[in-house]
């Protein structure tokens, strides 16, 4: 297996071209292994319904709690569509399913870049950035969670709006997303689009090599991440969350079963 694809440039020098597509298979296998592993574990240790949270804060929770605003849901699903479009247009031809992919790919890439810019602005000003941020405190909780999953520790405390694994996931996706978009935008200079004058010599050969590697690594990473994401989304015990990404809200019961109302204070404004 190779990690990188090298070629000889016209002067016979070795140049980095991109990641080796072996890594795609690695990501798929890795993603699948995680899913299968988790599934087996889950079968052996069926998830138990958590004790609902109690107390005054819990009592104050309304019957329907808004979990994702309409804007956030639209963002999520647009992103999902563009992501799938991008991955399909990127990887199907590599695995041998040929079609005219490039134009769709870069247009989808531009849509993705656009909505992400929107998301950043929206999240910065209209959503609580802290909800999604990871702090050192989360690390301890994450260890507890892992230990619990492995059956060696007690259940970790209930999370606020986003459990720590979600937040880690989000940040990984952010990282890969930023990588893939930044490199992708640069790569548009290499192809013929109405947007820029094509100039493959804009950057040095080695810089381009790293740009392509970044694009490759991020997108291959996204393959693994998205596989696990989809897997969790269809698990029965997580279904309430998936539904919330469609409907926007969760029931009080699900809320109390999965969140700590002290840590996610549902304000009057948010409930309806």
């Amino acid at each position: 297996m190779n990690i990188f694809q090298w070629e000889q440039n016209p002067w016979g020098q070795d140049i980095l071209v991109r990641i080796s597509w072996d890594l795609l298979w690695l990501a798929i296998i890795g993603g699948a292994a995680f899913v299968i592993g988790h599934f087996i574990y889950r079968a052996k240790n069926p998830p138990q319904a958590a004790e609902p949270a109690t107390g005054s804060a819990a009592d104050a929770v309304p019957e329907k709690v808004v979990r994702h605003s309409l804007v956030a849901r639209l963002f999520h699903w647009t992103m999902a569509i563009t992501m799938f479009t991008l991955l399909i247009t990127a990887f199907f031809p590599i695995v041998g399913i040929q079609f005219e992919w490039l134009k769709i790919h870069w247009i989808a890439g531009l849509v993705l870049a656009g909505i992400i810019v929107f998301h950043i602005i929206h999240a910065t000003f209209w959503m609580s950035l802290r909800d999604i941020w990871i702090s050192s405190k989360d690390w301890a909780e994450f260890k507890l969670e892992v230990a619990h999953v492995l059956g060696t520790g007690k259940a970790p405390p209930k999370p606020g709006k986003y459990p720590v694994d979600h937040r880690i996931y989000h940040n990984l996706v952010t990282l890969a997303g930023v990588g893939v978009i930044a490199s992708g935008l640069l790569m548009m200079v290499r192809i013929d689009t109405p947007l820029f004058a094509r100039n493959p010599y804009l950057l040095s050969e080695s810089t381009w090599g790293w740009v392509y590697v970044l694009h490759g690594l991020s997108s291959v990473g996204l393959v693994g991440l998205i596989m696990s994401h989809v897997y969790f989304a269809i698990l029965p015990e997580k279904r309430w969350m998936t539904i919330s990404m469609i409907a926007g809200w969760v029931t009080k019961k699900d809320f109390l079963a999965n969140h700590d109302p002290e840590r996610w204070v549902v304000t009057e404004k948010a409930s309806k």
Partner: peptide, 10 residues
């Protein structure tokens, strides 16, 4: 199999 067109550069 590479990622550049040498025939279409400035």
């Amino acid at each position: 199999g590479g990622n550049i067109c040498y025939a279409d550069t400035p």
